[in-house]
């Protein structure tokens, strides 16, 4: 199933991006080549050293939204004020440079991003009447916004993946070291024995005295108390132990799937991140969601455990555990 989901994410993503770009091109969403009129208020006159006017372009918000055909007003102000620099090029043409700041309308921010990730937009000036302060200009061409974003995302996210993986090295080493001491001291064995009544039911394929059991228990406990830094290394340790009793390398066992589902349903007693964000946003009672979150996660865990136990009985998934049937297995994913 992962194969299909993975390829669907990619294909749907790329085709949607292309479709949207074609649509943008046809409807000219970015108003390429369409002149726009605005007020230009000079804040700094040009000097002989710097042949440029600093100033502000002023739009009524409604006119801006109408020009770009934006349905909802994106700014609260009735007026958009945007700093800009008006320069005269050696060819005699005049150019408008629009630096992207926090006050920039979000539509222009998006355009600047699409124009190559620069921190400014450029516009060609058609006419500038200093007396009337009226300026007419066309913005630079913006096209293939989504497909450019897709290309950028592909590269950036691969980079993120490596960063995330490498940042695990430290905590992994720390916890694996501590766990190894616990193992050598026989502490994991004691822990395993204590939890046998529960784990025997959840993971019937795992021998009840196996070190994987202790690692899984510690991972689940760490998750419940929101100790993410400890939970992942313990979970990975558990996976390593489970893999030692895996008859078929590269294929997940029933126990691994069960363990994974417990992890993905994320039963946490205190969702610390959410509470912190709520407090930051000025909630009257940030912790109000503790009870509801536990309920939601309990629903997820129950549903997950039931479905994992039902699914593992399906012939489709059962068959993949057979060691002989190598070739058919690869295609099944």
């Amino acid at each position: 199933m992962l194969n299909y989901v993975w390829i669907s994410l990619l294909m749907i993503g790329i085709f949607t991006a292309v479709g949207r770009d074609i649509n943008d091109e046809v409807t000219n969403t970015y108003r390429n080549g369409v002149p726009v009129t605005a007020q230009f208020e000079t804040t700094k006159q040009r000097t002989s050293v710097r042949p440029a006017y600093d100033g502000e372009i002023i739009f009524p918000s409604a006119a801006f939204d109408q020009f770009y055909n934006i349905s909802s007003t994106q700014s609260q102000q009735t007026e958009i004020r945007q700093t800009a620099i008006l320069t005269t090029l050696s060819s005699g043409k005049q150019k408008l440079e629009i630096p992207i700041t926090d006050a920039t309308p979000s539509f222009w921010k998006e355009m600047a991003k699409a124009a190559g990730g620069k921190d400014k937009l450029e516009a060609e000036i058609i006419s500038f009447d200093q007396g009337k302060k009226e300026i007419i200009f066309t913005m630079e061409r913006v096209s293939f916004v989504k497909i450019k974003a897709v290309t950028k995302a592909a590269i950036e996210f691969s980079d993120t993946a490596v960063t995330i993986s490498l940042s695990l090295i430290g905590v992994m080493a720390l916890w694996l070291g501590i766990m190894k001491v616990g193992e050598a001291a026989g502490l994991l064995e004691i822990l395993t024995k204590l939890m046998t009544p529960i784990t025997r039911r959840l993971f019937p394929d795992v021998p009840s005295n196996h070190p994987a059991v202790a690692a899984m228990i510690m991972n689940i406990a760490a998750n419940m108390f929101g100790l993410n830094n400890a939970a992942t290394p313990m979970g990975l340790k558990a996976m390593e132990e489970l893999n030692k009793i895996n008859p078929k390398a590269g294929t997940a066992t029933n126990a691994m799937c069960t363990f994974l589902v417990i992890n993905t349903s994320g039963l946490t007693l205190i969702p610390a991140t959410v509470i912190a964000i709520r407090a930051g946003l000025g909630s009257a009672d940030p912790g109000i969601i503790i009870g509801t979150s536990i309920f939601g996660a309990a629903c997820a865990t129950t549903a997950g455990l039931i479905s994992v136990k039902i699914l593992q009985r399906l012939p489709r998934y059962k068959k993949e555990l057979l060691v002989e049937d190598k070739d058919a297995e690869v295609k099944n994913g």
Partner: peptide
Amino acid sequence: YFGSVGIKNTRHALPAGLIADFFGMLG
């Protein structure tokens, strides 16, 4: 988790995980 031990065939883990997520949202 699966990557750390080189598991490529994830079998029913993803469908079960997504069912869990769905019921979590419903809950």
